[in-house]
């Protein structure tokens, strides 16, 4: 299990390559890359991601531990950035590995659902029209119910 909460950019290819180098029991690796998105109608200049140092790491480690246990993962990786990010930069990388694909797919989905609304990050979007905090979505809360 490896977690990094960092301000600096990361190189997904290198991280995924390193993560893929696993023992011979691994039969499946799933990766998810989340990126800063801009809306052509109201182009994003940049995004500011604030977090709660200390709690962020604890909260994500707990989520990762639960995923490993529930899907009997061989390994998992989370990299999440904070600070100032511009459109098309990478925000988050999640990777999971297991013997069979189903477990790795579901665990990656679970990790992202919980990172969305149970890890202490807050996003502010800055566009030409001004700045605003991204509001949490009802759909993200509903998504958690799937895992009960």
């Amino acid at each position: 299990m490896k977690l990094s909460v960092q301000e600096e950019p990361f190189f997904p290819d290198g991280k995924i390559g390193h993560f893929s180098n696993q023992n011979q029991e691994t039969g499946a690796i799933v990766t998810f890359l989340g990126k800063v998105r801009s809306d052509p109608e109201n182009p994003l200049e940049y995004m500011l991601i604030e977090h709660y140092p200390g709690m962020t790491e604890k909260a994500i480690e707990k989520i990762m531990g639960e995923a490993v246990k529930r899907w009997n993962l061989i390994d998992c990786l989370v990299i999440h950035r904070y600070g100032k990010l511009t459109p098309s930069e990478d925000i988050v990388l999640v990777a999971t590995s297991s013997k069979h694909r189903r477990e790795a797919f579901e665990a990656a989905d679970y990790l992202m659902d919980f990172l969305k609304s149970r890890a202490p990050f807050w996003k502010k979007e800055v566009t030409q029209r001004g700045e605003s905090w991204v509001e949490s979505k009802e759909i993200d809360e509903v998504a958690l119910d799937r895992w009960k």
Binding site: G34, Y52, M55, H80, I91, V92, M112, L115, K116, S117, R118, A119, P120, F121, W122, K123, W133, V134, E135, S136
Partner: peptide, 10 residues
């Protein structure tokens, strides 16, 4: 003790 709005990670 920390106060904050709903989280928006990922």
């Amino acid at each position: 003790i920390a106060f904050f709005p709903p989280m928006t990670g990922g």
